[in-house]
Design a protein around this nucleic acid. Structure first.
Lengths: 345, 345
DNA sequence: CGGTCAGATGATATCGATAACAGTTTCCAG
DNA sequence: CTGGAAACTGTTATCGATATCATCTGACCG
C-alpha cells in the first residue's frame, strides 16, 4: 500500500476543471448560479479525483455545522428510539446530522455530553427531560442556539418544549382502573431518585389515588432505572408477598408490566381476573402479549417529528419569533384485555 | 434579548489571561508542558468567559476530528442498540464521538449515509454487514481510514471484520431441533432480498436441514425486514394453514419468534408440546417470555466492544500493522423450554 | 562559572472551505 | 446601439484552532 494518498481538496478539483476553488464550492451546492457546462465539468473532475467535500472546513467557514445534538436517557429503549426515528426522518430532508448521546438516566453524564456536544457547535440541541445539573443548565442557556426539552413539561423551560405531563398520563391509568371497579391499586417503578419521568408518573399516580380516596401504600421501588422485564417480575413477587390482596397494578413502563404479568402467570394468577395490569409507552410488546397489555401512548415518534419541525422553523424563518414555546402532547390510554372486566370486552 | 452575544474564542481567553492563544490551546489539553500557574490562570479566564472549545476548528487544524462513523440497519433493534452501547462505552475513554446513522436495511441508503459521513472526516468507519453498493464499496476502500464490517463474515472484507457466521448460527438451531427429535422444521423470516443477515440465516438453515436429510419446504417469507412481532404472528398463521404438521419452527429473530409463539398459544397450541420454537438474538424478551424461548446469542454488545478496541489499536499504535483482520465471534445456542422435550428439562 | 538541556511560551503558517465583494459577460429593452 | 440588470466567475479575507519551529528561562553539572 502506498503512502497515505492524501485526499484531494477543492483546489485540486478546481485545477483539474480549470476554474477557481470558489466556483467549485458553488458548483457542488444546489441553488447557486453556476452555468450548467461548468457545473458538469466540475462534477466530472470531482468524480475523477474521488473528491469528498470536507464539512469540517465548510462548517468552520460558514458557521453552519449541520449538527443537531440530541441526548436521550437510553439507547435500548423503544420509546426513545422511536423519537429518534421521527426526528431523523424529518431532518433527513434538511441534510442535518444528529449527534446522539445517551445519559444512562444520569444528569452528571448529561452535563458531560452537553459539554462535548457544544464543542461541535450544533445548530440546535435537544435534551430529554427537565432535570439538569446547574452547570448544564447554564451551558444550555448561554450556548446561543435553540434548546428543546422533550418528553416532559418543565416548570422553567430553557427554550422550547415538546412533551407531555407524565403525572397526567399516570392519572389516566388510575382513572381507568377505578372506572373498571378496581380499588386496591399498586405501582411498580424504578428508584425515584434517578428517573424523573418515572418519578413524575409515580407522583401523578399517587395524586390520582388520593383524589379517589384510595389507599396509596402499594408501591414498590426497584433498582435504578431503567427497570427491565426481569426487575418487573421480581418486583411483582415482592408486591404479591406484601400485598396479596392487590387488584390492579400500574408499571412505569410496558417492559416491567410484561415482566410483572408473566410473573403473575407463572404463579397461576389470571390476568385480568385475578390482577389487572397496566403499563406505559405503547410498546409493540404490550400489544402482542397474551393478554394484550393496557398502556399509555405518548406517540414517541411524534415527539421526535415535532421537535424536528420546531427546529426547522427556528433555523429557517428569521421572523417567526418564538411562535410557541410549549408543544404539548396528549397521552392516550389504550385499554386492552389486561385490565378490562369481561363484561366490557 | 441582545444581539447574538457571539461566543468567545481562544483569543479572547488568551487576552484575558495575558498569554498567547497557543498557550491557551495547550493549557486546555492534558499532557502538555504548561506551568501549573499559567494553566489555572487560563482555566479561570475560560470559565469567566464561558469559553467552549470549537472542535470544528480544532479538527480542521489537527486533522483529527474525533468522529467514528457507524451505520446500523435499524435503531429500533435491541441487538444493534447493544452493539452501539458496547462501542460507546469503550470509546468514551478516548473522547471519540460516534456519528450514528441507520440504513433501514437498504444499501442505497447506506451509500447515502457513508457519503455524508465521509465528509465529516471520521477517523474510522464501521458498517453493518457485507452488502454494499459498488459506489459505496469504492468510497470505503478509498477513504483512507480504517473500515470495519461487523455482524457478518464477508467473503471479501474491505478492512477489518468483527462478526460471526449467520449460517453457522442457524445450523446450531437446526442441530438442536434435530437433537430433540424434531423432524418437520420450518423457518419464518423477512423478504430475502433485503436483509442479508436474515438471508444468510435462511441459507444456513436450509443447508443444515439438507445435511440432516430433512424436508426444506416449510419456509415463510414475510414483508421487508425487520419483521416484527405482529408479522411473526401473521406468518405463523400462514405456516399453520399450509403445513399444519409442523413440529418445530425457527424464526429470524426473537421478536418474530415471540409473535409466532403467542399466535400458537392463541390457537390453543402448547409450546413446545405441539410446536417447538426458536428465535435469534438473545433478546430479554426471549428469556422472560412464557415459556422462555430458545435462542442464539451472538453477544451483540461484545461485537461493539471489540470493534471499539480494534479501532483504538489501529489509531493509537502506529506499528501494529493490521495485526488481525477477522475477529470472529462464536454464536451460542441458549436452549430453553420453548424447544426442550419434557424429559430433558 | 560557562555550557547544556529540558520546560515554558510565543510567532507564524497553515488546515479546507465559504462570505463578501468585485469584475466580466450576456442579453434585452428602449 | 447602448444602458443596465442578471448571470456567472474570480479575488481576498477570514473562520478558530493547532503544528512547527524559534526563543527564552533557569536548573544542573563538572
Amino acid at each position: 500500500m502506498t503512502k497515505n494518498p492524501k485526499q484531494p481538496t477543492m483546489i485540486d478539483v478546481a485545477h483539474l476543471a480549470g476554474v477557481s476553488p470558489m466556483t467549485v464550492s458553488r458548483a457542488l451546492k444546489p441553488n447557486t448560479s453556476v452555468s450548467e457546462a461548468t457545473r458538469s465539468k466540475i462534477r466530472a473532475a470531482a468524480d475523477e479525483l474521488g473528491y469528498v467535500l470536507d464539512s469540517t472546513a465548510a462548517g468552520l467557514s460558514s458557521r453552519r455545522t449541520g449538527f443537531i445534538a440530541v441526548t436521550i436517557p437510553s439507547i435500548n429503549n423503544a420509546n426513545f428510539a422511536d423519537t429518534l426515528r421521527g426526528l431523523t426522518q424529518v431532518l433527513r430532508a434538511t441534510n442535518m446530522q444528529v449527534l446522539l448521546g445517551y445519559t444512562d438516566y444520569d444528569v452528571a453524564e448529561e452535563e458531560r455530553l452537553v459539554e462535548q456536544f457544544l464543542r461541535r457547535r450544533p445548530e440546535a440541541i435537544i435534551v430529554t427531560g427537565h432535570a439538569h445539573t446547574d452547570r448544564c443548565r447554564r451551558m444550555l442557556e448561554k450556548c446561543g442556539v435553540p434548546v428543546i426539552e422533550m418528553w416532559d413539561l418543565p416548570e422553567n423551560p430553557i427554550g422550547q418544549v415538546v412533551g407531555f405531563s407524565n403525572a397526567q398520563a399516570a392519572k389516566l391509568m388510575v382513572d381507568h382502573f377505578v372506572g373498571q371497579g378496581y380499588r386496591k391499586i399498586g405501582f411498580i417503578g424504578g428508584d425515584p431518585s434517578r428517573d424523573t419521568r418515572g418519578q413524575d408518573r409515580r407522583q401523578g399516580f399517587l395524586a390520582a389515588l388520593e383524589a379517589h380516596g384510595l389507599d396509596t401504600s402499594r408501591m414498590i421501588a426497584a433498582q435504578r432505572p431503567p427497570i427491565t422485564m426481569r426487575e418487573g417480575a421480581h418486583s411483582m413477587r415482592l408486591m404479591l408477598e406484601k400485598w396479596p390482596d392487590i387488584e390492579a397494578l400500574m408499571c412505569v413502563s410496558d417492559l416491567s408490566a410484561f415482566g410483572a404479568m408473566t410473573e403473575c402467570q407463572r404463579q397461576g394468577l389470571r390476568i385480568p381476573d385475578d390482577i389487572a395490569i397496566g403499563g406505559f409507552g405503547a410498546y409493540d410488546l404490550a400489544e402482542q402479549a397474551l393478554p394484550p397489555i393496557t398502556t399509555i401512548d405518548v406517540s414517541s415518534e411524534n415527539i421526535g417529528r415535532i421537535a424536528a419541525q420546531v427546529i426547522q422553523n427556528l433555523l429557517s424563518s428569521e421572523a417567526t419569533k418564538t411562535s410557541e414555546t410549549i408543544h404539548r402532547i396528549e397521552p392516550k390510554l389504550l385499554a386492552r384485555d389486561s385490565s378490562l372486566r369481561h363484561t366490557e370486552r
